[in-house]
């Protein structure tokens, strides 16, 4: 084993696994057969679990590998691909959904942890032809470009206005004990968990400001 291998725990573990589970591989491009895959239970076999998500008002019964994130449950199992995978590590906000009334990163939550939870995704806010006021404001203000961060920005902004309404403070507050102000700087700070690499920020804040102003 060379030095770079010695540095790598994943590879070490792979080596250990390899000792007791060697399977002959074909010389050509390897493709497994169904029989080879139907082996007896093994320690890395997926653990399946039944759960119900209440997504956009509809109960969705699923049986999922426990490793499935809420994000992948939505995208790959319910085919609600409006929620985006940008980084899968909580560093971009493209996967923002509203779960239990709060915006969260769906990539950093396991689906099984949300058994029974209400989840609102972008598809639950509005549809083409019946846009949510925030979606309509994003269109009017051109508050997007490539569109990939957009559902996350919109879900985040809808939940963010609720947070403001409930008096949740932010880093932008001059006095953290005071009720938060509805200023552009407050909105910017509160939306900073949603990265837009196209750089639509200036327009996004204008879209949100318009919706915020129209609401009591």
């Amino acid at each position: 084993m060379n030095e770079s291998d010695a540095m790598n725990p994943a590879r070490r573990e792979a080596l250990a696994l390899g000792r007791d589970m060697l399977v002959g591989g074909a010389a050509a491009c390897w493709a497994g057969s169904p029989s080879a895959r139907a082996a007896s239970p093994r320690r890395d076999a997926p653990v399946m679990r039944k759960l119900t998500l209440r997504v956009n008002g509809a109960a969705q019964a699923l049986e999922l590998d426990t490793r499935t994130t809420l994000l992948d449950a939505l995208r790959e199992h319910l085919h609600l691909t409006g929620t985006k995978k940008g980084c899968d590590h909580g560093q971009c906000g493209a996967c923002t959904v509203i779960a239990g009334g709060r915006r969260i990163n769906a990539c950093l939550s396991l689906a099984v942890m949300h058994d029974g939870d209400e989840v609102t995704t972008i598809e639950g806010l509005g549809k083409p032809g019946h846009l949510h006021p925030m979606q309509a404001a994003f269109v009017r203000h051109d508050a997007y470009q490539c569109g990939y961060c957009t559902p996350g920005q919109i879900c985040s902004s809808v939940a963010m206005l609720e947070e403001l309404r409930h008096g949740i403070p932010s880093h932008a507050a001059a006095d953290v004990a005071a009720a938060p102000a509805w200023t552009p700087d407050e909105l910017r700070e509160r939306m900073s968990g949603n990265i837009c690499r196209c750089g639509a920020y200036s327009n996004i804040i204008e879209a949100i400001t318009e919706v915020a102003g129209a609401q009591p």
């Binding site: 969260i104 985040s156 953290v176 509160r190 968990g193 949603n194």
Partner: peptide
């Protein structure tokens, strides 16, 4: 307030919600 301020300086609202 030093605690509230430190919390609000960390991560993002989505992460702080969890």
């Amino acid at each position: 307030p030093v605690l509230a301020r430190a919390l609000l300086a960390g991560a993002s609202p989505q992460l702080r919600n969890r």
